[in-house]
Amino acid sequence: MEFLRPGCWEEALAAKAEHPAAVPLAGGTDVMVEINLGHRRPGHLLDLGRIGELSEWEVGEREVRLGACVPYARIVGELGRELPALALASRAVASPQIRNRGGVGGNLGTASPAGDAHPALLAAGAEVEVESVRGARRIPIDEFYTGVKRNALRPDELIKRVHVVRATGPQQFSKVGTRNAMVIAVCSFGLALHPGSRTVRTGIGSAAPTPRRAAEAEAFLAGALAEAGLWESRRAVPPSVAKRFAALAAGACSPIDDVRGTAGHRRHAVGVMARRTFLWAWEAYRNGAEGAA
């Protein structure tokens, strides 16, 4: 196994162009586990650790430009206001040690349906900025996940950063696991209210081949909120609306039975999480909060 250590972004892109099968190594929290278990033996590892700009972020007017290697611990500590769902998701990632190493770029690169960041990115709205020696492009998050552990990256491309829409309303993230910390998601759910556009976005994790939005549930909820003028009145939502939203979110799942959980429980739990996260977010919206707690 050859270990490539580019000193700058351009070198990294050149290396990736030369060795398209090279596996990028950022925090290493996925890659090293796979190597240690013998599940993966890449010919080349491409260490991104020396490229400082990948660990930087910038808060813009409309979006946060989040470097691929910004560790989860920093997202929790410093971006809770701008990216509340992602910060909540980051807090649920693994252990403190992993949160100090791992970042969103790794989650996106692995594209596991169980990655904690995905539902939050789907709910907030985001674009993944990728680049190769041929040039840069931005992939909408809705089009990024293409299959189980597959994404829209081309072989010579590297993930540089994610442009995540800044929260203009409350956001939530919730994850079911079979212990109370350090657990891979059995299923997860992200939700963001976008009062400006009068829309609600969602993200479902680990309950389908890819992370996905619950489009029908989102449309139903936006319609119900608009119809009753609730965005303006900030009144309580009728229980039947929350219930229907939950059922539609559960219906958006295509889960499987595996060693971590059953399809039935995943579908059920996504419904419960959808109802709870929506009610928490709506309560925060009624109280005038911009972000989630």
Binding site: R91, F173, S174, K175, V176, G177, M273, R276
Partner: peptide, 13 residues
């Protein structure tokens, strides 16, 4: 709470 920092409940259920 059950679920801990995975944020599954704020007391519900």
């Amino acid at each position: 709470l059950p679920g801990g920092l995975a944020n599954t409940s704020h007391g519900e259920g």
